[in-house]
Simulated assay, not measured.
Amino acid sequence: MIVEELALPGLFLVRPEPHADERGFFARTHCEEEFAGHGLIGRFAQSSVSFNHRRGTVRGMHFSREPHAETKLVRCTSGAIHDAVVDLRPGSPTYLRTEQVTLSARNRHALYIPAGLAHGFQTLMDETEILYMIDRPFVAAAADGLRWNDPAFALSWPEPVTVIAPRDLAFPDWAGR
């Protein structure tokens, strides 16, 4: 597998290296030891699945406040998503900057998202499913978010928004925090 750091420190794209034969292929998608070699958390406490019926669905931008901030490994197992992150770490050289990538069942890439980054996505196909590996148990009282279209971040979404939760619509502007 190839572990490639992106523009935001600690944010990594994880790409499998398939070993193919007439049956198909086999590829590692996670290795605790290799993650540790890159300074990454490699042990995850829980897994979650997000299933989305309709293309254009937006979920996010979600994060958990300290001391319950979560590190996630996100992979699209069916369909495709436009994935977005915002760096909310005040001491980071990329504070309030964004990164956006496409994850799909076809490219089989994963995104390693360290604690302190807000995360969200838009589905690019109907019937899209995302697998989350999370380093610690979820604490509902620490859950927070940014509005998906907050002008402070100028995130670009490739599709018209078809579905979004009322909670995600209600997050305040970052400037008001």
Score class of each variant (00 low, 15 high):
Phe26Cys: 09
Ala27Met: 02
Arg28Thr: 11
His30Phe: 06
Glu33Arg: 14
Glu33Phe: 14
Glu34Trp: 01
Phe35Tyr: 10
Phe35Lys: 00
Ala36Asp: 09
Gly37Met: 07
Gly37Leu: 06
His38Cys: 11
Gly39Ala: 12
Leu40Thr: 10
Ile41Phe: 00
Phe44Ile: 10
Ser47Thr: 15
Ser47Cys: 14
Ser47Asp: 12
Val49Met: 14
Val49Arg: 05
Ser50Tyr: 04
Ser50Leu: 11
Arg54Val: 07
Thr57Tyr: 02
Arg59Met: 05
Arg59Leu: 08
Gly60Asp: 03
Gly60Cys: 05
His62Gln: 10
Pro67Ser: 00
Ala69Ser: 07
Ala69Glu: 00
Glu70Leu: 12
Glu70Gly: 02
Thr71Arg: 03
Thr71Pro: 10
Lys72Cys: 01
Leu73Gln: 01
Val74Met: 03
Val74Ile: 11
Val74Thr: 04
Thr77Val: 08
Ala80Trp: 02
Ala80Arg: 01
His82Phe: 07
Ala84Asn: 05
Ala84Arg: 06
Ala84Val: 14
Asp87Glu: 04
Leu88His: 06
Leu88Ile: 09
Leu88Pro: 12
Pro90Met: 00
Pro90Lys: 02
Pro90Val: 00
Pro90Phe: 00
Gly91Arg: 09
Gly91Ala: 13
Thr94Gly: 07
Tyr95Lys: 10
Thr98Met: 09
Thr98Cys: 11
Thr98Ser: 05
Thr98Trp: 04
Glu99Asp: 03
Glu99Ala: 14
Thr102Ser: 08
Leu103Gln: 06
Ala105Thr: 08
Ala105Leu: 12
Ala105Tyr: 01
Arg106Glu: 13
Asn107His: 00
Ala110Asn: 03
Ile113Cys: 04
Pro114Tyr: 03
Ala115His: 03
Gly116Cys: 05
Leu117Lys: 11
Ala118Ser: 14
His119Thr: 05
His119Leu: 13
His119Trp: 06
Gln122Trp: 04
Thr123Glu: 04
Leu124Lys: 01
Leu124Cys: 00
Leu124Ala: 01
Asp126Gln: 05
Asp126Glu: 06
Glu127Asn: 13
Glu129His: 02
Tyr132Met: 12
Met133Asp: 08
Ile134Gly: 08
Ile134Cys: 12
Asp135Thr: 12
Asp135Ala: 12
Arg136Thr: 14
Pro137Cys: 09
Phe138Ile: 12
Phe138Val: 12
Val139Phe: 10
Ala141Cys: 07
Ala143Tyr: 10
Ala143Arg: 13
Ala143Met: 10
Gly145Lys: 13
Leu146His: 09
Arg147Gly: 14
Arg147Thr: 11
Asn149His: 14
Pro151Ala: 05
Ala152Leu: 06
Ala154His: 08
Leu155Asp: 08
Trp157Leu: 13
Trp157Ile: 10
Pro158Tyr: 02
Pro160Asn: 03
Pro160Glu: 01
Thr162Gln: 04
Thr162Lys: 05
Val163Cys: 13
Val163Arg: 11
Ile164Glu: 06
Ile164Lys: 09
Ile164Phe: 07
Ile164Arg: 15
Ala165Glu: 11
Ala165Asp: 15
Arg167Asp: 08
Asp168Arg: 14
Asp168Glu: 11
Leu169Glu: 15
Leu169Gly: 15
Leu169Ser: 15
Asp173Ile: 06
Trp174Glu: 08
